Simulated assay, not measured.
Amino acid sequence: MAKNESSGSKVTKTASSVLRDPGASKIAKSLAGSTLSQAHTTKQSSATTARTAAKALNDGRASTSTKSMAGSVLTQKATK
């Protein structure tokens, strides 16, 4: 199994800001929570979270910060 990376400091700062933002979308907050829960750990993203992240990356309306967190979540997806 490939080694998974933990969330970096830049993306965790973004995630923290998103969680404190009352105007952030539900998907952004979900990805932010996942990003922060995986910071400094080797935890892996669930399949459900990975699907949410993939949808966010494909959504033209998603913000740059949402896409950044989605990318972080997907890099922590379990690989076979």
Rank of each mutant, 00 (worst) to 15 (best):
A39Q: 09
A28R: 10
T48N: 06
A54Q: 14
A28W: 05
R51K: 15
K13P: 00
K3N: 09
A50E: 05
A28T: 02
K29E: 04
E5H: 07
L36A: 01
V73L: 02
A70P: 10
L19C: 02
A28L: 08
Q38C: 10
Q44Y: 04
S25M: 05
L57V: 01
G8W: 04
R20C: 00
S9V: 08
L36H: 00
T42C: 03
M69G: 08
G33Q: 05
V11A: 13
L19K: 09
L57R: 13
T52Q: 12
S7Q: 03
T35P: 07
S17G: 15
A50S: 15
T79E: 12
S65Q: 14
S45R: 00
L31C: 04
Q76K: 06
S63F: 03
K29W: 03
K43C: 02
T42K: 15
K55V: 14
P22C: 02
K67T: 08
N4K: 15
A78E: 12
S68H: 03
S30F: 01
I27S: 13
T79A: 09
A24W: 03
S9R: 11
G33N: 10
K80I: 02
T75R: 15
S37R: 11
A56I: 11
S37A: 13
D59A: 12
A24G: 07
S37G: 13
T64S: 14
G8A: 09
K55P: 01
A2D: 11
D59C: 07
A15T: 03
A50I: 04
G8R: 00
K10M: 10
K3F: 08
K13L: 07
S34C: 09
R61N: 15
K43L: 10
T52H: 02
K10P: 00
G23Q: 12
S9A: 14
T79C: 02
L74M: 11
L74E: 04
Q38P: 00
G60F: 01
I27K: 07
S72M: 03
T14I: 14
T42S: 15
G71V: 06
K26F: 06
Q76T: 05
S37P: 00
S46F: 02
S72P: 02
L31K: 05
A70C: 08
T14K: 11
D21V: 02
Q76D: 05
S9K: 12
L31R: 07
T48A: 15
T64E: 14
T66Y: 01
K29R: 14
D59M: 07
A47E: 13
T48W: 01
